[in-house]
Write a protein that binds this DNA or RNA. Structure first.
Lengths: 358, 358
DNA sequence: TTGAAAGCGCTAACAT
DNA sequence: ATGTTAGCGCTTTCAA
């Protein structure tokens, strides 16, 4: 205990005499052991604990004079209400939790940001949990987080539909982000990956591309599965699927395979692999978009600054975070979580795509 | 309803009649209102609450048979110990908090990641707070966060030294990251910005650069102040300070000013502004590093993928997060937080710097 | 308007 | 090895 740095309690007394166990902070006289509690404040102010509680919570029905006395006592004792005790008495935590598979992914960083800001604005704290991509660990962590929060948002959960359904009662209230699960009572905010791929394909075919390579994301990613499926569904394409990943380096390493497969266009699972392949291609002296076009997915902040600037589809990650808060808030107040929504990605044509070479 | 996995006692009654308000999960008969508590489990198992507590906490001193009975009862009732009650009884939260000024900054994202992983490994949860750069709000949020956590790490706090010192007692145990405060009892993990700038300057002057521009970061940033001061301290340089910011766009917008000031090299407050200026320069048809060299700071993941790849100084943001956990952990166990450490940035020479044009 | 008292659900001596 | 008994610190009827 008492790992605290202070210690050299700068008591006005220069002598710094008494090596008191407890620091002296009160107006006058030493403070009893331990931090002030509602009882000590009540005693000091000569009122009941109920009154202190009322004052601390701004109840209007307390005599101004008394209130002042209580506040003075609280101040003098450096009183801070125990959050733990309030949680227990109130039955709520004033906290929401967010579970993400990977904190290094800009997508999740952005929903984190959106959620954090929205929740913060409402005076709610945020518990962040990284599940490291492991489905079963994810579930355990989510449950654990849920116990310390009033609600939870699950971003791109890796757990199977069935598992999520059987846990829904213990997780509730919660909202799903980047994922839909049929027959689940929780609202879901997701991306229409099919539509996003559709935009990309339309753009590419309009430019005359036929042979395209897909830099596949992590197998466990539902988003990857959808994007891949959408691509496969298009019979007009001659598709080559290249195992890749989700990071810059993965894309970078895949450049060779891309040229080897002879595709005239490559679409990355996300902007990071797309940027990586961009760099890899340049190192191989392959001109983009002269010889091969590349397109990403997500529109991370960096996509505008690659060279050439990356054509990609934008998804409102931040907005998803904000919305997740709205839904969760509604749910926590016993209201409906609203309809599921599927955001439609928007194609951003920049300079990494061009006509297919003849 | 009825999300629970077990249920193996699948109530033989197929009728599943009663549309009961509460779900029926127990051995036989409906469950009382509300979630199971330690008392209900104790009653169901025919033991005392103390025994249930012991079983739930894996105390070895309980008869295996009894333990099994308790576990069965807990299972049957879907019992989950109340985290709030434990916090109160135990006097600890099992949580640490992290306060950062800006979640969109890769630097902070990386300490978040490092801290999250280290804390997670120790079974500790993480409360994340974004202070939005406002010093006074930051302090309030930090205090508030601290109440719900056993310790706190402050990343690059904007609050003045004095404020931090007067609050140190209420914040403790805590550790400082990206900032040092004299006479504060808390351990601090920081970056030697002076040394980082030193590396950059040495590199640049070796290449023959004399007139250099600095793309200044946010005025409130202590890191910016240090980097700027270090640059100014070098009398061999003809320095132009350009107000800029911390984001891509800021750097991008500053490209014009850079060429206007006639510098042969520009150092960005961080990698984002450096990347931005890189793009801006290209749009202005200024060759990098042919006509002007550019160097960044931080070595974010993207720095390797700009065009040309960015020369920058690397700082171990992730490691800072991990170390912060170690220190905090020590502090929380009454041990010493150890010596302050100042990480020495490492210069990474890539392709955005070259000889000064004659 | 204020106080008394009964919890909130769990843990930890202490006793058996 | 198990049960009894006190809390942990706050909120909230219910009376006065």
């Amino acid at each position: 205990m008492r790992a605290s740095p202070e210690d050299r309690d700068g008591d006005d007394e220069r002598e710094a005499a008494a090596p008191t166990a407890g620091r002296v902070t009160g107006r006058r006289g030493p403070r009893p052991a331990g931090p002030a509690t509602i009882s000590s404040v009540a005693a000091a102010a000569g009122v009941s604990r109920a009154t202190v509680s009322r004052v601390m919570n701004g109840s209007p029905s307390v005599h101004p004079e008394l209130a002042a006395r209580v506040r003075a006592a609280a101040e003098a004792l450096d009183y801070e209400p125990s959050a733990a005790a309030r949680r227990l008495a109130l039955g709520r935590t004033g906290t929401v939790a967010l579970v993400v598979p990977d904190l290094s992914n800009p997508l999740f960083q952005n929903v984190l940001r959106g959620l954090s800001q929205a929740a913060g604005k409402a005076g709610c704290q945020l518990l962040v949990v990284e599940s490291d991509e492991d489905p079963e660990e994810e579930v355990v962590l989510a449950l654990e987080a849920r116990r310390n929060a009033d609600g939870i948002v699950l971003a791109s959960p890796r757990a199977p539909d069935a598992r999520l359904r059987e846990l829904s009662e213990r997780l509730a209230p919660f909202v799903l982000v980047y994922r839909e699960v049929a027959g689940l009572g929780a609202p879901s905010l997701s991306i229409d990956n099919r539509a996003g791929i559709g935009e990309i394909v339309a753009h590419l075919t309009a430019l005359g591309h036929r042979r395209v390579a897909y830099l596949a994301g992590p197998p466990a990613s539902a988003g990857n599965a959808e994007r891949l499926a959408a691509l496969r569904a298009d019979r007009g394409l001659e598709l080559t699927v290249l195992p890749c990943g989700s990071m810059f380096d993965h894309g970078h390493a895949a450049a060779g395979a891309v040229v080897a497969c002879g595709a005239s266009a490559v679409v990355g699972f996300n902007d990071m692999v797309a940027s990586g392949v961009l760099t890899g291609l340049r190192e191989l002296d392959v001109r983009v978009p002269g010889e091969v076009s590349v397109v990403g997915f997500d529109d991370i902040a960096f996509a505008r600054y690659t060279s050439p600037p990356l054509t990609t589809v934008a998804i409102p990650a931040n907005e998803l975070g904000r919305q997740a808060w709205e839904r969760l808030w509604a749910l926590m107040n016993g209201e409906s979580g609203g309809y599921n929504v599927r955001y439609q990605p928007r194609l951003l044509v920049r300079d990494s795509t061009g006509p297919a070479p003849s």
